[in-house]
């Protein structure tokens, strides 16, 4: 199954990535291979099989109580950021 250039552009846009033309061609081929791989599933008869939405089907809830816990400081939080001003994370201008 061929993956159109349009699909590749859409995927790039959703992932906020920019591809060069030769990359698009290469990714197109790779996407096709991935889809083909999953197409093998089409061969399986799934009549009457419910979609599996969770594998955590134990009959219990996993909750935490509503308690405040202070884990890290602002300084620690910002320390991994490529850009910050000591108070805010800074990212390239996004128009709101």
């Amino acid at each position: 199954m061929a993956v159109s250039k349009e699909t590749i552009n859409t995927i790039a846009q959703l992932a906020r990535l920019e591809f060069r033309e030769e990359e698009k061609a290469r990714f197109g081929q790779q996407f096709e291979q991935i889809i083909e791989y999953f197409n093998a599933l089409e061969a399986i008869n799934l009549d009457g099989v419910e979609p599996l939405k969770t594998i955590l089907d134990a009959d219990i809830n996993v909750f935490r109580e509503d308690e405040v816990k202070r884990e890290i400081t602002t300084v620690e939080a910002l320390s991994n950021a490529p850009k910050h001003n000591g108070v805010f994370f800074k990212v390239p201008k996004v128009i709101g």
Binding site: K83, N85, F88, K90, V91, K93, V94, G96
Partner: peptide
């Protein structure tokens, strides 16, 4: 996100 306080967007 704050867009109007800096040349960058502040988060």
């Amino acid at each position: 996100s704050i867009h109007d306080l800096d040349i960058d967007t502040l988060v």
